[in-house]
Amino acid sequence: MESSQHRGASPETQKTVRINIYRGDAEGGEFVEYDVPLVEGMVVLDAVLYVQAHISPDLAVRWNCKAAHCGSCGGEVNGRPKLLCKTRVDDYEGEEIRVSPMRAFPLIKDLVTDVSWNYEVARSIPEFKPAEKAPFTMYEEDVERLYEPKRCIECFLCQDVCHVLRSHHKHPAFAGPRFFAKIQSLEMHPMDTGHRTEYLKEGRGGIGFCNITKCCTEVCPEHINITDNSIIPLKERVVGDYYDPAKWLMRKIRGRRNGE
């Protein structure tokens, strides 16, 4: 891919860092080099915002809190999904820095992608069906497993790195790791009466496409153990409902007894 070069105004004595930012839209684009004054503790988003403020005002980047809480500034640094606000420039000392948009989603402009597909998936998940009307009493030991998936900030880096979406483009048939974490929080809720294994196996969930290669867990900025604590427990629930021959036989016997 071609690249062009821009230099930011900086005093002669100040150290600079060279950063390559993808510039383009759905039609195509290229990496453009920028020299940015290096400040101690600087994160990649600082460098991008410097370029936007001083060199190229038309650079598009989505960001909000700059504190790794809102999940807006997801992108890729050297081909790895990262929150730009949480990625320190000095982690890449001696390396080239290439900042690009998330590849699993359609590009709008520069570093901004259209992540609305995720909201469509969210709407397709069978909703929370409480056994009784809220407010209800729940105990710590029953809800402690729900804290972890609820840390999700919906940055969609896990969706971006997942090869089922990124390389195989299974968007119409696969929900992705973010939504497996969401489904886990619903499925394991002590007050929920809903069933989602059919959605996971036969429906939009498509959990069988996941081959548990753990890239989602590796990139999660909230350190949610998506694979071990969300995906595999859900796969095991699907096994129980669809693949376990002993359970299948027990259901048949019970069904016959109940006249089904």
Binding site: S167, H168, G208, C210
Partner: peptide, 12 residues
């Protein structure tokens, strides 16, 4: 990754 998108079936 060598597999073509249309031939990927995961654990299904």
């Amino acid at each position: 990754e060598p597999r073509e998108p249309e031939s990927y079936r995961g654990e299904r």
